[in-house]
Amino acid sequence: MSKIQQLSFFGTLGFLICGMLSASFPTQFAKAQTGAVGSTSFPSTIRVAIRENNASGEPDSRGRIIYVSNVNFDQYCRDVLPNEWFPNWNQSSLEAGAIAVKMFAWFHHLHPVTIDGFTFDVDNTVNFQTYRAESDQPTTDQAYYSTRNLAFVKTDSEILELNYRAGYENNPNWQYRNAGIMAQWGSEYWATQGRTPVQILEFYYMGRMIRTIPGVGRG
């Protein structure tokens, strides 16, 4: 390979690397800017895509999107929690669940999607979180409002999608901790063992931390 060929090869390589970096850096930078507690405002509404019901009258996770509903963010979280957690579970489990439901919704509020011509943050099925209007319960409402000012985030305050799955009853569900996903039955197990909501979250989401959301109250 001649000197000119070498120069043009390394020049092209350098150009490509610079291009890739310039393409990726601003995006990451913008994401960190828009997705951190303190620099991004607490959502007031969330866009919920309502999918068509199946034959037995329940929302079909593979059904067509009928419309997108603008729902008050607090109301959305309150109408999700009793459908994801059990309203008669221990308060610590419900509070851990309330934070997870809120952070999941907040993350998707910052990362909307467009499907079939509809732009939305979440839908009303298990594709995101099970949402049923007017289904909030007194115990889950209490859990939501007592943790409304708390966020569970990365150490640099970046907002995360806190995922959770059912897990197994009467079991700490260690495999879920390894996967970085909260087990709902596990949260109830730890609550019966006297763990606090923050301890439950720290058990399943390692390397994350609790933060107070500036300007957000419990009411």
């Binding site: 059990f86 008669n88 007017e134 289904s135 319960q137 007194p138 115990t139």
Partner: peptide
């Protein structure tokens, strides 16, 4: 309508 022992439930 979902009911649990000793729990407070509401429905619409």
């Amino acid at each position: 309508v979902r009911m649990n022992e000793g729990a407070v439930n509401k429905t619409t």
